[in-house]
Lab assay of single mutants.
Amino acid sequence: EETVVIALYDYQTNDPQELALRRNEEYCLLDSSEIHWWRVQDRNGHEGYVPSSYLVEKS
């Protein structure tokens, strides 16, 4: 079962390993094994790492 997370803030990045976030957008959580950086996928299928503190699990 996939976990959906919501971005609390915008996040901009130039790092190809990371993914930009848009506030209030939903993302699919792929990997939360790292404490500070979670791997997520956006609705267009793009994947990357984002700061975990910018996300909240959708209830």
Score class of each variant (00 low, 15 high):
S52T: 08
P16E: 12
V50P: 02
E34T: 15
Q41R: 15
L55Q: 02
K58R: 12
W37M: 13
E34N: 09
Y49R: 15
E25N: 11
W37K: 15
E26L: 05
R22Q: 09
R22I: 14
E1V: 06
E25W: 06
E47A: 07
E47D: 05
A20T: 14
Q41Y: 06
V40P: 00
V40A: 03
E57G: 06
G45M: 05
A7I: 00
Q17G: 12
V40Y: 00
S33H: 12
L8A: 06
L19T: 04
Q41C: 13
R43L: 11
V5D: 02
Y49I: 12
T13M: 08
T3K: 15
L30K: 14
I6H: 05
G48F: 03
R39Y: 10
T3Y: 09
R39I: 12
N14T: 15
H36W: 10
Y11K: 03
L55W: 01
E57L: 08
L19A: 03
I6Y: 09
V50N: 00
S53W: 07
V40Q: 00
L19W: 03
V5A: 07
Y27M: 00
I35H: 14
I6C: 08
E57Q: 09
Y54G: 04
N14M: 07
H36K: 15
E1L: 14
R22T: 14
V56N: 09
E1M: 04
E18A: 12
R43A: 15
E34P: 09
A7D: 00
N24Y: 03
Q41A: 13
Q41D: 06
G45Q: 07
Y49S: 14
E18Q: 08
V5W: 10
S53I: 13
D10I: 00
V4L: 13
Q12M: 07
L19G: 01
L29W: 00
E47N: 09
K58N: 07
L19S: 02
Q12N: 08
E1Q: 05
P16K: 10
L55K: 00
V50D: 02
G45T: 04
L55E: 01
V5R: 04
A20P: 15
P51V: 01
D31P: 02
P51C: 02
V50T: 04
E1R: 03
P51L: 03
L8S: 09
Y49D: 07
V4C: 08
Y27F: 04
W38K: 04
D31N: 11
D31R: 03
E57R: 11
E2T: 14
D42P: 01
P51R: 04
R23F: 07
E47Y: 06
W38N: 03
Y27T: 01
D42C: 05
Y11F: 07
D31E: 10
N24D: 13
E34C: 08
V50I: 02
W38Q: 03
T13A: 15
